[in-house]
Simulated scan of single mutants.
Amino acid sequence: MASKDDKAPSITFYTKEQTQCPICNAKFKQEKVMSGGGRLIAGSLTDELRRLYEPSAKFGEVLPLVYAMTVCPKCLYAAFPQDFCVLDKESLNKIYDGMQDRFTSVKQLFSKIDYAGSRTLNEGAASYYLALLCYESVDTKYSPHIKQGLCALRGAWLFSDMGRKFPEENYSYIADLLYRKSLFYYRRAVELETSGQEMIANLKSFGPDLDKNYGFDGVLYLAALLEVKYGSRTDPEKRRELLAYHRRSLAKMFGLGRSSRNKPGPLLEHARNLYDSIVAEINEDAEDE
């Protein structure tokens, strides 16, 4: 029999208080990741503003994103923690009506998902997919489009991780689909914000990852980056038009001057690199004509 000393070191804990699902009334304790004791060793920051973490000898690989979303283990209602218990009745009723569709959709991706026990990468990736479905039914006052964009982006990250771990599966294909969905929702969120139809300022953190909030500037940067990486190339003229828009947006945000001194250093560096890439593509297209 293994002794307590042989027990694998813990990377998570469960909250003492229970959360009650506002849809099915199920009560459950949430699993949270521990951050101290050398569990999280910050690595590099990707161009998508994702923070990578180095595996530690004691705890192995730890992915905080796996535990970030609140998910009801009974009805699979998923949302950001700040939204889970506060959505209006009409939104909750619509989410309730989509319960069976959530079960069916997630079963097409995973043979087994269990939010009653400790989460794995499967539950982490599925949590963002489920939240993406749930926010389809949420009122505009809760800024669902930017939250769907964030869910799709984080989901793409975790499905990409799964694709590297299990290359024989279709997870990389799902990741690519989520990246393209993220582009759609980021683009739409910026359009709605600009027109005043859906404000996104009430978002607690624009992320996109958990370690730092890059604010609305981060949203504009990611909208441009996703357009460059995943935007359609079937209509060259339309693509040039979109790239020109993002070039102006980046130039305005991170142009030389006093205002740029207040921008986060990593974001400023990535934005300048992206700006150069956009200019290079536009110029290359002009030379080909």
Results as ranks from 00 to 15, higher is better:
S44L: 02
G60N: 07
A42Q: 15
P64H: 02
S44Y: 03
G60Q: 10
V66C: 02
R39F: 00
L63D: 10
S56V: 10
I41T: 10
V66R: 15
R50Q: 10
E54G: 00
S44E: 12
L63S: 11
L63M: 06
I41R: 12
G43Y: 12
A57S: 14
P64G: 01
R39I: 04
L49M: 11
L52E: 15
A57E: 15
F59C: 06
E61T: 14
L63G: 00
A42T: 15
L63K: 11
S56D: 05
E61D: 09
Y53A: 00
L40S: 04
D47S: 14
G38N: 06
Y67Q: 12
L65E: 14
S56E: 05
L40G: 08
P55Q: 05
F59R: 13
A42C: 02
S44Q: 06
L40M: 08
F59K: 15
I41Y: 00
D47H: 08
A57R: 15
R50T: 04
G60V: 07
D47M: 05
A42N: 08
S35W: 06
L45K: 10
A57Q: 15
G60P: 06
G37V: 07
L65T: 11
E48T: 13
G43A: 03
F59A: 05
V66P: 02
G43D: 10
V62L: 02
G60C: 04
L52V: 13
R51F: 00
S44K: 14
I41Q: 11
Y53R: 11
K58M: 03
G36M: 01
Y53E: 08
G36L: 07
V62M: 09
L63P: 01
A42M: 14
L40H: 12
L49E: 09
E48C: 02
P55Y: 11
K58T: 12
V62R: 13
P55N: 09
T46W: 02
L65R: 14
E54K: 13
L65G: 09
G38Q: 08
S35E: 10
A68S: 12
Y67N: 12
I41K: 14
L52K: 15
R51M: 08
S35G: 15
V66E: 04
S44P: 02
G60Y: 09
K58G: 00
P55F: 05
G60R: 12
T46H: 03
L45I: 13
R50C: 05
M69G: 04
M69R: 09
A68D: 14
